[in-house]
Nucleic acid binder design. Structure first.
Lengths: 229, 229
DNA sequence: GTGCGTGGTGACGAATTTGTGACAGACGGT
DNA sequence: ACCGTCTGTCACAAATTCGTCACCACGCAC
């Protein structure tokens, strides 16, 4: 199940819909009027935003720029939608960084297909904007950690470290890379510094300590749901 | 730098080009005639395939299906390209699973932009092409081996060894070569070290142990589907 | 069957790599 | 200056990995 924010002028409302990838159907979840689309996006963090460029009294492009400016929304794929079919406009949209661009008139089916394609493509990247497993919640965007609802204080270094690990969730991050990215280029760091910080992170992660797996001889890896062996 | 395979009829050739994401330029690498596009794709494993549907004497859709049918190419994003501008055709393309669809006439710049967008989106996914064959899935980044879905932890050396074998799937790798590439140049390794590691690998491979065949007097060979012969 | 050469196996100790607790300096706020 | 926190470092413990060896098993030629 995916959440898609549709910023449209057809109905003159902003719709937060759930898109069922299998059944290929939209379903309106909430409909708020008078609230900025950008506002909603930042709160709801949808998986995809369908942005109509022909908004009344509003420049679609500037909405887009706002979305890209905020860390919470800047990685959400955007499908632009417009009546303008001119090549120039299509280029402008794509050049800005839109992930796709559909021009009216289009069949609902085509839009659906493009949405599906986009969701499929970006699922892994955006699906877990915030990682959750049980009482463990790591907000990727704000980079705050919650355990059982309670926020956990992370120091700056721990933050950087955890962030690198989480952003490459599932992949092994080499010790060298971590040292370089967290502490800057330093060959001075020949010691157990990294290990110590990993230890401290694990302490704060409590029973979720296993989420940070050590890969001997290589580095560390973050996994949301630790698989035994 | 990305490799893009362009299957086009404009020039009547198949072009393997390198796409410079920063400078936004294509550059023809090789141009072979008379060779199946699918063939090239399977050999070169490009990062992206631009597929013209209006190939002479050839159905673009069937090329597409062939690409999707092979494990080596089935994860490569495909951008379809055609003169057919009808909605139905666009739907057909997207429905098949194409990652994008551009209709002629289009400005070269727009194509470039779409290519860039696609590469950007799929970079991370395809960059770490994981080796797959049968039940095997060897993820380079993760340093993990999946057997029928279940993760198997490999040590650094085991991984190097298996990787070499799998990458040359089907071919015999000589003992010397393996020793050299895994352990560096070493004539010191006159012992049973390689054998031991092969043994350990086979243990971890479980019932797939037979996939690593020993070729007496020469070396080892990896085969995805061991033939009893 | 016997003998030779090559590969397989289990065990073991050394080497390498990580985890841990403690500690002292640095930094910032009061 | 005082105090608490954050950080890097160290010495040492614990955990794995790795190479080696002795020994066994198998295939092949005779």
């Amino acid at each position: 199940m995916h959440t898609v924010l549709v910023v449209d002028d057809e109905t003159d409302i902003l719709e937060l819909v759930v898109f069922n990838l299998e059944r290929q159907q939209f379903k309106v979840l909430t409909a708020d009027n008078g609230i900025s689309a950008v506002q909603i996006a930042k709160e709801k963090i949808p998986d995809l935003i369908v942005l109509d460029l022909m908004l009344p009294g509003m420049d679609g492009f500037s909405v887009y720029r706002e979305l890209r400016a905020d860390p919470r929304t800047n990685s959400i794929p955007v499908l632009m939608l417009t009546a303008k079919g001119e090549v120039n406009d299509r280029i402008a949209g794509l050049e800005l960084g839109a992930d796709d661009y559909v021009t009216k008139p289009f069949s609902p089916r085509e839009l659906l297909l493009r949405v599906r394609a986009l969701l499929k493509r970006t699922r892994k990247v955006t699906a877990d904007a915030s990682l959750k497993s049980g009482d463990f919640l790591l907000e990727r965007n704000t980079l705050k950690l919650f355990l059982a609802g309670r926020p956990v204080d992370l120091t700056a270094t721990e933050f950087k470290l955890l962030r690198l690990l989480v952003e490459a969730s599932g992949e092994v991050q080499e010790r060298d890379a971590l040292l370089r990215e967290v502490w800057g280029y330093s060959d001075t760091m020949l010691t157990r510094t990294l290990d110590t910080h990993v230890k401290r992170l694990r302490e704060k992660l409590g029973k979720h300590a296993e989420c940070i797996q050590t890969v001997r001889g290589v580095g560390y890896r973050f996994v949301s749901s630790p698989t035994p062996a």
